[in-house]
Design a protein around this nucleic acid. Structure first.
Length: 693
DNA sequence: GGAAGATGTCATCAC
DNA sequence: CAGTGATGACATCTT
């Protein structure tokens, strides 16, 4: 027995929401002016902030703070930076979300360039800014720009003062900075004309809720994928696109539940890092269905009942209060977990097709729409009551979609699959059955979230894990444990119910928790009797479901075992039968040889009549007959058993067996016994007079 | 459209 | 006595 210390398994829990928690906390601190150590003065407005946050987002601030290390700094930004451009950037620094409109995007971009803001990569400015600026351009320019994204990297972004004139490539900033248009070797970057957009971390995901903020008519067809009340949400998934850009700055823990989705851009290979960024996106998406009210910070038009402004951190903070109108329950978006590429394409097709579903009539007019240099973005946006959508939106959506699923090449204008069409009309959570095709088994190891789930029981005691589990919206993402293959219809139903009772925690948690943790959870959450009843019902059914699965498995195992046993027994029986026939055969041989021996013995050593008589006396008739007759016996010469078994009498035997008769009949003394049976007509022994010479 | 299998749920029993 | 697991029976869904 070794006394070595036992091997200790080291588990790692990597929270996918921690960073957002921190960020959100910082944002709250900023809003409450807690621990803020810097005042940024822009024009006549001042903003309180944390220098560490600003420095980590902005090269400008980093330089300033490093060089001026005094407390309670006050930094006045140059005239180049406007409130209009700075405020969204500040908000981005604290929320990872950039809210912009067509009016301020250029200003934001300019300020971002000036301040050297990270994380606003090409997914944001590089595409959207030219795209929006193209609104006033010609259709040809739109096409040209839209189809050569790599060129965008080198394009000079128009200054806001240029009245959104787009295609004029001018140096846009007085402080050009490094531009890293990674990936494309075709990019002919002009150093002198390089935009100052800081792309030193170009892969860092950028939340583009603003894409969601595109003014979409609330009466647009519902997304088949996410039954929400507003078609804006149809873009929700697509807005994940940019977030899916492989991010070097995002730890692998910030996991994308869409494991198999190559969340890469054209020149980026599939890897887990590529998926890293989209976790938040998906979660944000999920929350979009849960939070009816638009976020305060969101500049969304009030058309939407469900904000497209998605906030990861809020998810992490138990934003499970589901509005009645939100159909997708907390645990449903979890079903989004891993898609393979094909499935993802289908899904996205459905979504995108729904998003572009009303575009059909518009497409032909795209060019016309852009030919008007006076057309504003708001004009492009469909008016209420209109089912049309601008091609910019469509293009943006498509772009984002391609960022999300690069292999998606289908046109957004493709007609909806029948399934999707049907789903779009039903409008309940059961319509999520398309999510059934999600490949939950796809490389779960690639997904720390799934790993966490898989090892949930092992990693942490229920009590400890409870808060984390509780707060993790990921818990909603995957069916727990053994019922991972639950179909989404069922889930949808239960989610529907859970939504009705508005549980403050994911339904899956109910069944996945140990009893202690479950009770603790119930204790923590003050549930109404209805909720309590529902929760217990869910737990009971879930447990019973698992038990039934176990029971069936056992039964199958038992059947299998019995079948094996039957097979084995049959083989054994065959063997025994074979053995028996062999033994019979050997017995026959033995008897035959014994008879031969007897015959030879008889012929050589004829016993005296007395001996034979004595022998006959002690032998059973059968034996005697056998012994005596065997040598010459033939099938036709058989003593009837009845006679032999009868009481016998040698006399009666003797009538049939002349030999015996001869044997038992008194012989004259000295007369040698001579077997005569050899001459008997064996076929007619009975009643035949022995021919005794 | 029906058959067979899979699965969820309920009722019941035993521990 | 409550909780839980096992299991038969039934319903529903999928193939």
């Amino acid at each position: 027995m070794s006394l070595d210390s036992p091997r200790t398994s080291v588990f790692t829990f990597q929270s996918a929401v921690h960073s957002m928690h921190v960020l959100r906390a910082l944002d709250e601190q900023r809003q409450k002016d807690i621990l803020c150590d810097v005042t940024v003065v822009v024009k006549n407005r001042s903003f309180r902030a944390h220098c560490s946050v600003l420095a980590s987002c902005s090269d400008f601030f980093q330089t300033r703070f490093v060089s001026h290390s005094s407390q309670n700094r006050v930094i006045s930004l140059p005239k180049d930076v406007t409130v209009e451009g700075f405020e969204p950037l500040l908000q981005f620094a604290y929320t990872a979300k950039l809210h912009f409109t067509k009016e301020n995007i250029f200003e934001i971009h300019r300020c971002a360039e000036f301040l050297g803001f990270h994380n606003l990569d090409k997914a944001c400015f590089e595409f959207l800014v030219p795209k929006f600026s193209d609104i006033s351009g010609t259709a040809q320019e739109v096409k040209r720009r839209g189809h050569s994204t790599e060129k965008v990297c080198n394009e000079k972004l128009p200054s806001p003062s240029s009245n959104h004139n787009t295609d004029k490539e001018q140096p846009s900033s007085a402080e050009p900075q490094n531009v890293h248009c990674d990936g494309s070797t075709t990019e002919t970057q002009s150093a002198s004309n390089a935009p100052t957009l800081q792309l030193s971390e170009p892969r860092t995901p950028v939340s583009l809720e603003t894409a969601v903020q595109l003014e979409l008519p609330p009466q647009c067809p519902k997304s088949p994928a996410f039954q929400v009340g507003n078609s804006q949400d149809q873009f929700c998934l697509q807005t994940c696109g940019p977030e899916l850009l492989p991010s070097s700055s995002v730890p692998a823990s910030a996991v994308c539940p869409f494991l198999s989705v190559p969340c890469t851009t054209d020149n980026q290979s599939e890897n887990t890092a590529a998926t890293a960024g989209c976790g938040g996106g998906i979660l944000e998406l999920g929350e979009a269905f849960q939070n009816e009210e638009p976020r305060g910070a969101c500049a969304l038009p009030e058309k939407s009942s469900v904000s497209g402004d998605l906030n990861m951190s809020e998810i992490a903070e138990e934003h499970f209060d589901q509005p009645v109108g939100a159909v997708v329950p907390a645990n449903n978006y979890g079903s989004l977990c891993p898609l393979n590429t094909t499935e993802a394409s289908e899904v996205l097709e459905n979504i995108a097709a729904a998003a572009a579903g009303s575009l059909e009539g518009v497409q032909a007019e795209d060019n016309l729409a852009f030919e008007s240099s006076e057309q504003t973005f708001s004009e492009l946006a469909p008016k209420d009551g209109s089912s049309e959508r601008s091609s910019v939106e469509r293009e943006v959506a498509e772009h984002l979609a391609k960022g999300f699923w690069p292999d998606l090449t289908s046109s957004l204008s493709e007609p909806l699959p029948l399934e999707s069409t049907d789903q779009s009309t039903s409008g309940n959570a059961a319509d999520f059955h398309w999510l059934k095709h999600l490949d939950l088994g796809a490389a779960p190891d690639d997904c720390p979230f799934l790993r966490e789930l898989n090892s949930n029981d092992v990693q942490s005691p229920a009590g400890d894990s409870l808060p984390q589990v509780e707060k993790s919206p990921y818990m909603s993402s995957v069916n727990s444990g053994q019922n991972s293959d639950c179909d989404s219809a069922e889930d949808s139903e239960s989610n529907h119910e859970s939504q009705r009772v508005e549980l403050p925690f994911p339904v899956e948690q109910i069944s996945s928790l140990s009893r202690g943790a479950f009770l603790q959870l119930l204790k923590q959450q003050h549930l109404t009797p209805e909720q309590l009843e529902y929760v217990q019902d869910v737990r009971r059914r879930s447990k019973n479901r698992v038990a039934a699965q176990r029971c069936r498995k056992r039964k199958l195992d038992c059947i299998h075992k019995l079948e094996c046993e039957i097979k084995k027994l049959r083989a054994q029986k065959e063997k025994l039968l074979q053995e028996r026939s062999q033994m019979k055969q050997s017995m026959d041989e033995t008897l035959q040889s014994l008879s031969g021996l007897c015959q030879s013995a008889c012929s050589e050593n004829v016993p005296q009549p007395e001996q034979l008589q004595a022998l006959a006396k002690y032998l059973s008739p059968e034996s005697a007959t056998s012994v005596l007759l065997t040598p010459m016996s033939s099938p036709s010469l058989s003593v009837p058993e009845r006679d032999l078994q009868s009481d016998v009498s040698l006399s009666s035997c003797s009538k049939k067996l002349p030999v015996v008769e001869t044997l038992i009949s008194p012989q004259p003394d000295g007369m040698k016994f001579k077997p005569t049976y050899a001459h008997q007509d064996r076929t007619d022994s009975a009643g035949t007079e022995p021919s005794v010479p």
